[in-house]
């Protein structure tokens, strides 16, 4: 038996919008730790890792570890039927082939049940070791979204370089080139507007902008984004999900042939 009650149901709606274009089908894993997902995109270039800790739910009952295969497009369709202020409860029976999403309006005058069919999904689970990153950039998520969108109108690949001067996002395409440099800025009124660059070693890596743009679908989840870079390793783009967890995107770099 599984029953997870999330008062801030809009978080789950936003989480789905952040991953459904990247991954078609995925297993949601439920354990005493929380509600989690790890999945790759169909071309195995990017990986998404989601964790919503059990403490973040108003009620969290998970009698035994459960893995539920879901089509994220269909799940998104169902969650779109929940109001932004609704409380969402996820319910499933052990060994069952459906999951139920229950939506309660804040005033309790509307209660809806949506039952979705589960599917068997064969998925690889990758072990991601904790790494010391050469450079970590924290910046407003809206700024990162803007940069990815702007650069993708010029080119297909972004080069992200961190030096002691700051962080540079560059691209090149048929019509020309673009470079955007951000400098550390911590003298801001609101901490979420800060640009914090932690450089242990300079680093420069190339990534497909198409994926970066897809990651920025998570922008509504968090005011800030953290980009962790190390030479010859996938970049990690992390958005916090309120106080309850995170969504992390891992993207393999490109190299010049």
């Amino acid at each position: 038996m599984l029953e997870l009650r999330l008062v801030q149901g809009s978080l789950l709606k936003k989480v789905l919008e952040s991953i459904k274009d990247l991954v078609n089908d995925a297993n949601f894993d439920c354990s005493s730790t929380g509600f989690s997902l790890q999945a790759m995109d169909s071309s195995h270039v990017a990986l998404v890792s989601l964790l919503l800790r059990s403490e973040g739910f108003e009620h969290y009952r998970c009698d035994r570890n459960l893995s539920m295969g879901m089509n994220l497009g269909n799940m998104s369709k169902m969650l779109k039927c929940a109001g932004n202020d609704d409380i969402i409860t996820i319910k499933a029976d052990d060994g069952g082939d459906t999951v139920t999403f229950m939506f309660e309006s804040p005033t309790q005058d509307k209660i809806a049940d949506f039952e979705m069919k589960l599917m068997d999904i064969d998925s690889e689970h990758l072990g991601i070791p904790d790494a010391e990153y050469h450079s970590i950039v924290r910046m407003p998520s809206s700024e990162f979204q803007r940069i990815c969108k702007d650069l993708s109108t010029i080119g297909d690949t972004v080069v992200i370089s961190v030096t002691k001067e700051g962080v540079k996002f560059s691209t090149a395409g048929d019509i020309g080139t673009a470079n955007i440099v951000l400098r550390q800025n911590t003298t801001v009124d609101k901490p979420e507007d800060a640009i914090v660059i932690e450089m242990n070693e300079p680093v420069s890596l190339s990534f497909a902008l198409r994926y970066m743009n897809s990651f920025t679908k998570a922008t509504p989840l968090s005011d800030t984004v953290t980009i962790s870079l190390s030479s010859e390793l996938p970049v990690v783009v992390e958005y916090k999900v309120a106080e309850m967890g995170y969504i992390r995107y891992y993207l393999a770099p490109k190299i010049e042939e």
Binding site: H125, L126, I255
Partner: peptide
């Protein structure tokens, strides 16, 4: 032209 790495090259299958 750039070569795109596969993410599975970096992390071990559990």
């Amino acid at each position: 032209p750039d070569k795109q790495f596969d993410i599975t090259l970096f992390y071990k299958d559990l």
